[in-house]
């Protein structure tokens, strides 16, 4: 039995089910990160002093550039499918995957440097919330990479039998990926600059 409305739009919502599904998931993600941002505000306003300059602005800025670039390549991966250009789609999706990997490698070096200096989560309130926020964000990057790997590997077969459904899957992956980028756009100034 086929799952209905994977490609065609529902008459009531005007949306394919996956589209509404991913947006509801992102809404729950807004609340998840929102709760942690709210925690950050409580911790910061309640702290007698808040450290400045503990993190490398250069590394944070480089990771911002990496994520923004990966958002561009992700949306281009989807647009290439819409133009029936499979080669470009693969190229852009691989680029997005590689950029995500570079982000995590960068983060690994950042974390290990802090750990080396004894700046573990128990070091201070700042580092506790820093590791919580960036750790959760990092897990989201990893999750996105797993989905991309699937779409580059076994999931790519769908393009032959059902190109529209495959394009939708790429679109939903993109929506998730842009959200992960959006979270970082707020994490960067909040943790690295202010």
């Amino acid at each position: 039995m086929n799952i209905p409305y994977t490609v065609e739009e529902r008459p009531d919502s005007g949306l394919a089910n996956g589209k509404l599904g991913i947006w509801l998931f992102l809404a729950s993600e807004v609340m998840l990160f929102g709760a942690l941002f709210s925690t950050y505000i409580i911790l910061r306003t309640g702290a007698p002093e808040w450290p400045h300059g503990e993190l490398s602005v250069l590394l944070g800025a480089i990771n911002t550039v990496i994520l923004i670039s990966s958002s561009v390549t992700m949306v281009l991966a989807w647009a290439s499918l819409k133009l029936n250009d499979w080669g470009k789609h693969r190229l852009y999706l691989i680029m997005t995957f590689v950029l995500a990997g570079v982000f995590l490698v960068n983060k690994y070096f950042e974390y290990s440097e802090h750990f080396h200096e004894g700046q573990v989560p128990a070091h201070s309130t700042f580092f506790a919330i820093y590791y919580t926020l960036t750790g959760l964000h990092g897990l989201h990057i990893l999750g996105g990479m797993i989905v991309m790997l699937y779409l580059l590997g076994p999931g790519a077969k769908m393009w032959k039998k059902n190109p529209d459904q495959f394009a939708n899957r790429i679109e939903y992956t993109g929506l998730y990926w842009h959200f992960v980028d959006l979270v970082w756009i707020f994490l960067f100034p909040v943790l690295y600059l202010l």
């Binding site: 005007g14 509404l20 947006w23 709210s38 958002s71 561009v72 949306v75 929506l175």
Partner: peptide, 28 residues
């Protein structure tokens, strides 16, 4: 990138509801 400049009203509805709850969360 997320095409919210031209999306269906159900998505806007879901996001408006999220915004309302988010404001409560940020008011904590």
């Amino acid at each position: 990138f997320m095409h919210l400049s031209h999306e269906r009203k159900w998505i806007y509805g879901a996001l408006l509801l999220t915004l309302a709850f988010w404001i409560v969360l940020m008011s904590v």
